[in-house]
Amino acid sequence: MPETAVADTATGVPLKELAARHGLASSGRLLGPVEYARQLWGYRHFITAHAKAKTVSTLGTTNLGTLWQVLTPAINALVYYIIFGVIIGTGANTTNFVPYLCIGVFVFGFTQATVSQGVNSITGNLGLIRALHFPRASLPLSAALVEIRNFITAMGVLLIIVLITGEPVNLQWLLILPAMVLQAMFNMGMAMGGARLGSKMRDIKQLIPFIMRFWMYASAVLYPVTRFTDHLHGWKLHLVEANPMLVFVELYRHSLMENVTLAGSPRLLWTEAVIWAVVVCGAGFLYFWRGEKGYGRG
């Protein structure tokens, strides 16, 4: 059709040159990773507002509202206490098994919730993505932020449990702060990676519960970590002990409890945690950033 062609440029300049001459940028151009990170920082208020909105909209329809932020972890701990502490008594050989168990459940739950929310963060917000322009990484980060907030409340519940079960308060408790920072970084990386994976392969969403359960059993959450050292040797033991979730769980146990047998020396655990946090956070960010322009396609 003749009228479709360059009807308005009587001069006959090729459109590409015309665009370049007037400094028009191609829509859908991908920014560099550093520039992207800076743009993301500019959207920090959006990320926090979105996270807050998400919490309000999920809990807003319940009667107890935000009280559930405290109730959920408390009930969670109660369930595990009744089954493992009272009925089965798994921790017969571990001193003070209840806080040991609760720390594992809470810390693992933090990452578990972040991953499952992160995987959904693109596919569940397609309407927003197709309507407004913002760096897409805001969505998995907001999902991670929701869980960080929940975890901080859960931490309050956890500290009370630890106190009630007779662990003394000491300065070492402060170590949970760097542990939380490292785990939060790790989770953000997981959320960003999971978000792109979830948007590319919808089927992954169905598999996440199984993957996470498998991961939980491999992270010495429900039983003492000494089970691994007793039964595994050589490279298998090294492999199990390098598991980032095991490392994080052990770090919190190290910070909050006395007389606890760890999977490795604290120095080794901290080094592993730092490496995991930095690598996963960076890799997750880069992986997500590469797909930035395709998320609207759905």
Partner: peptide, 28 residues
């Protein structure tokens, strides 16, 4: 810039923004 083009190109000044009827905000 919300949907990528398969072939050809679209150039724009600044960041165009789309305002649609079915643009989803958060209903709750």
């Amino acid at each position: 810039g919300l949907l990528p083009v398969q072939r050809g190109a679209i150039y724009a000044a600044g960041q165009p923004s789309l305002l649609g009827v079915n643009a989803a905000l958060m209903n709750d």
